[in-house]
């Protein structure tokens, strides 16, 4: 196990390097630059900007500089939000996205697994269909529809919660609901499918026929293998959800980092986009490593050392 762990850690360095390299050149290939705006600027001024921000150096030179700075832990200043460095922006925004993301994922796992489990145990019954229909609602109604509806009902019409902004636990409730609804659906559907599968495996059939109590059966034997596919999904999903959602952030006016992925790209804010890509890349690598290690915990037959 440890051998595998270290091999993976070593393997993540070239992975990250490849991500940085491809991303860097991909971003620069896209037309338009950070200083293009509705109001075209005189050529002399554009030249000043390019010089001061080193945008007229050859691309490989810029790449070299960037790589060196990243090694030093410096992601540079944002092109768009010029008063802040990329590191500062991520430091400010990530705690917000992390809080919302973790709470949303925990909530969706809890509710989703209970719903999915219920449906699986009563397969093809009325309860099954009801629960699945309910869960499906979360995914059938997109984020950008459910979020304004929540804000309208609970913020504007009922006045129970703020319609937007950040600063207290009340501000978190609506965004968390909006974030977790689609995830609840996913978890519930996958739990149902996976649990049915597990309950049909020969060893559980045997255990069942021996008359073991259902609760014992579920938690002792069925739970772990059931979780396997959810675990695979959970790695990338967690990385995605804790880096925020641009839709939910914009609708609720939250200071998370999700918007930087989209707005940074739209603004050609080269440094900011690179910063969030590297950040997200590290998260993906770590989450997938954790998932792979957990596989072995949930299914002892899985071995990596061969």
């Amino acid at each position: 196990m440890w051998h595998y762990f270290f091999k993976r850690i070593a393997g993540s360095i070239p992975t990250l390097f490849i991500i940085i390299t491809i991303a860097f050149f991909m971003i620069r290939l896209a037309p338009g630059g950070p200083f293009d705006s509705e109001r075209p600027i005189p050529a002399e001024i554009a030249a000043n900007l390019d010089r001061v921000y080193h945008l007229n150096d050859p691309l490989p030179v810029q790449y070299g500089h960037y790589l060196l700075n990243v090694l030093k832990g410096d992601f540079g200043p944002s092109f768009k939000y010029q008063d802040y460095s990329v590191t500062e922006l991520i430091q400010q925004g990530f705690p917000v996205s992390l809080q919302l993301g973790v709470l949303a994922i925990v909530l969706s796992l809890l509710i989703g697994m209970i719903l999915g489990g219920l449906a699986a145990l009563k397969q093809n019954s009325f309860i099954d269909h009801l629960v699945m229909t309910l869960a499906m609602t979360g995914i059938a109604i997109p984020n950008f529809v459910i979020a304004p509806i929540l804000a309208l009902i609970f913020g504007v019409l009922l006045g129970w919660l703020p319609a937007g902004g950040w600063g207290s636990w009340q501000h978190m409730i609506l965004p968390i609901i909006a974030l977790s609804l689609p995830q609840v659906a996913t978890v519930a559907r996958m739990t149902r499918a996976s649990l049915i599968e597990t309950l049909h495996t020969p060893y559980l059939r045997t255990a069942r026929s021996k008359g073991l109590p259902m609760r014992h059966l579920l938690f002792r034997h069925a739970l772990k293998p059931t979780l396997l596919p959810i675990l695979s999904w959970l790695g990338p999903a967690t990385a995605a959800i804790i880096t925020g959602s641009v839709v939910v952030e914009q609708i609720f006016g939250l200071p998370g980092i999700g918007r930087y992925f989209v707005n940074g790209a739209l603004n050609r804010d080269y440094t900011l986009v690179m910063g969030v890509i590297i950040f997200y890349g590290v998260l993906i690598i770590v989450m997938n490593l954790v998932v792979d290690l957990l596989y072995a915990y949930f299914d002892p037959r899985i071995r990596y050392d061969e």
Partner: peptide, 8 residues
């Protein structure tokens, strides 16, 4: 797969 996940 990790690389593709992370690419912009």
């Amino acid at each position: 797969v990790d690389v593709l996940y992370a690419l912009p």
